[in-house]
Design a protein around this nucleic acid. Structure first.
Length: 202
DNA sequence: AGATTGATCCAT
DNA sequence: TGGATCAATCTG
């Protein structure tokens, strides 16, 4: 079952927690030439290609007072999406090289999103590097493997096209680890919030 | 530990 | 318009 806007339009911490165990699905269209996130050599793919992955790690970015959030400096062309409709993709380029995938949460005009930090690929990984799958730790690797880049920025994840999230396995609260978010040392007191949630691997 | 890499944002 | 700053990752 595809997660609808109602799922995303709630408290960000709750969404971040419930996304663990859900299935991130990426559907790639057939292509006749190198384009749209198609790996080198993937010419003339005649059938759609589906990549599925269990979400194993998320981070919450919630409200203007969260100094770790891009939205803490208010509305800008870039952060406008975080103020917009829940269930949209907010994707940005980081360090000039890597993309990060976030899902917008909460009500309109309240800036918040959940960053997808880690997944386990179920379907068909394209990377040749064995270390890159099936477990992917790090938002940059997630996007590389799932062919997510800024072309999908603003995409509606509730439509069930190109990219969406499905309800997955039920997760027990005791299997969820809370920790400080990564790479937000600049965020004063907010850096210590335990807003990084991950599945304890067994 | 250091290099990489470019969009973004704020101060000139 | 410049320049610091990044929700990171890879080497060594």
């Amino acid at each position: 079952m595809i997660l609808k806007q109602k799922f995303y339009q709630r408290d960000t911490l709750k969404v971040a927690k419930e996304l663990l165990g859900c299935i991130l699905v990426r559907k790639l269209s057939p292509v006749k030439s190198p384009q749209d996130g198609v790996a080198k050599g993937e010419f003339n793919r005649v059938k759609p290609k589906i990549i599925k992955a269990v979400i194993t790690e998320t981070e919450a970015y919630k409200g203007k007072n969260d100094l770790a959030s891009h939205a803490s400096r208010g509305r800008t062309p870039r952060t406008e999406l975080m103020f917009g409709e829940a269930g949209r993709a907010y994707i940005y380029l980081i360090y000039g090289m890597y993309h990060c995938l976030n899902i917008v949460t909460e009500k309109k005009d309240y800036p918040a999103a959940v960053l997808i930090r880690g997944v386990e690929i179920i379907g068909s990984p394209t990377s040749k590097r064995k270390s890159d799958f099936p477990k992917l730790n790090g938002p940059g690797k997630v996007c590389r493997e799932m062919k997510v880049d800024k072309k999908l920025n603003g995409w509606d994840l509730t439509k069930g096209e190109k990219i969406w999230i499905e309800r997955g396995i039920k997760i027990s609260p005791k299997d969820i680890k809370k920790a400080k978010r990564i790479g937000v040392d600049y965020a004063k007191h907010c850096k210590d919030y335990l807003w990084r949630l991950s599945l304890i691997s067994k």
